[in-house]
C-alpha cells in the first residue's frame, strides 16, 4: 500500500468512479438541507448555512489530525507516501477551514449581529488556518523534498494540540459561539429531519475530501517520481 506506483495505479483506476459518487452524495445532502429541511423556529432560513459550515469545520479539524498522524509516520518510518500526503492535504485543510470561517462570519452577521468576535472558538479556528498556511509556505520555500516533508511533519505534530482546543473551547471558556450541535458521542440537539441531511453533508464532505486528495496525490507522485522508469512508461503509453 505504501508504494507510490501501487497507490497511483489504484487511485487512477478508482477515481473515475469515486469522484462522481462523492459529488452525488454532497449534492443530495445540500439539496435536501437547503431546499427541503424545515426552517428553524428561531433563526428562520439562515440556519441552512449549517449544512456547509459544520461539515467544513469538521473536515478542517480532522484533516489536521490526519496530517499529524501521517507526519509522525513520516518522521518515524520515513515513508515516502506519508510526506506526499502532508503536502497534498494541507491546501485542502486550509480550504475547508477557510470555508468554515467565511460561512461562520456570514451566518454570524444576521444572527449574532457581528461578522467576527475574538472569542476562543473563532480565534483558535483562525490559528488552525494559519497553521495550514504555514505548512503550505514551508513547502514552497524548501526546495529539498525530504527536508520539506520533515519540517511539515514537525509542524503538524506540534500544532495538533489546537484540534482538542478548538473542540473544547466552547466548554472551557465563555464564548459567543454556541456548543456543538453535531457530535458523535451524544444525541444531536436538532430534530431528525434537520439532522439527517446534515449527516449526509458530512459524509459527502469526507468523500469529496478523499477524491480531491487522491487527485492531488497523483500529481505529487508523478512530479516526485518523475525520473523513475515506471512514471516514464506511464507517461509515454498514456499520452
Amino acid at each position: 500500500m505504501g508504494s507510490p506506483p501501487f497507490f497511483f495505479k489504484w487511485a487512477s483506476r478508482l477515481l473515475p468512479w469515486f469522484s462522481p459518487i462523492s459529488f452525488s452524495i454532497l449534492i443530495i445532502g445540500l439539496i435536501w438541507g437547503v431546499g427541503f429541511a424545515p426552517s428553524d423556529y428561531k433563526q428562520g432560513d439562515v440556519y441552512r448555512i449549517i449544512f456547509v459550515h459544520v461539515p467544513s469545520a469538521i473536515l478542517g479539524q480532522s484533516i489536521y489530525l490526519m496530517m499529524a498522524i501521517f507526519g509522525s509516520i513520516c518522521l518515524i518510518w520515513r515513508a515516502k507516501l506519508a510526506g506526499m500526503f502532508l503536502r497534498s492535504a494541507a491546501p485542502l485543510g486550509a480550504s475547508f477551514t477557510l470555508i468554515a470561517l467565511i460561512s461562520g462570519a456570514v451566518w454570524g452577521k444576521p444572527t449574532w449581529g457581528t461578522w467576527w468576535v475574538w472569542d476562543a472558538r473563532l480565534t483558535s479556528t483562525l490559528i488552525l488556518f494559519f497553521l495550514y498556511v504555514g505548512i503550505i509556505g514551508l513547502y514552497s520555500s524548501i526546495d529539498n523534498k525530504q527536508k520539506g516533508d520533515r519540517a511539515a511533519s514537525l509542524i503538524s505534530v506540534v500544532g495538533v494540540i489546537i484540534v482538542p482546543i478548538i473542540k473544547k473551547s466552547v466548554d472551557w471558556w465563555q464564548t459567543l459561539h454556541q456548543p456543538s450541535t453535531f457530535s458523535i458521542t451524544s444525541s444531536p440537539s436538532m430534530t431528525s429531519d434537520m439532522y439527517f441531511p446534515l449527516l449526509i453533508c458530512v459524509i459527502g464532505f469526507y468523500f469529496i475530501f478523499v477524491s480531491l486528495l487522491c487527485n492531488r496525490l497523483r500529481v505529487e507522485i508523478l512530479t516526485r517520481e518523475r525520473n523513475t522508469t515506471w512514471v516514464k512508461e506511464y507517461l509515454n503509453n498514456k499520452v
Binding site: 428562520g44 432560513d45 448555512i49 456547509v52 480550504s95 460561512s103 451566518w107 480531491l212 487527485n215 492531488r216
Partner: peptide, 25 residues
C-alpha cells in the same frame, strides 16, 4: 425571507473553492 443572500453566498463560495481544488491537479 430576505435571508437567501447569506445562504446562497455561502454556497457560491463553497462551490468556487471546491471547483478550484478540482481544477488545480
Amino acid at each position: 425571507d430576505g435571508q437567501g443572500k447569506y445562504v446562497w453566498f455561502v454556497l457560491l463560495i463553497f462551490f468556487i473553492v471546491i471547483c478550484f481544488n478540482y481544477y488545480l491537479p
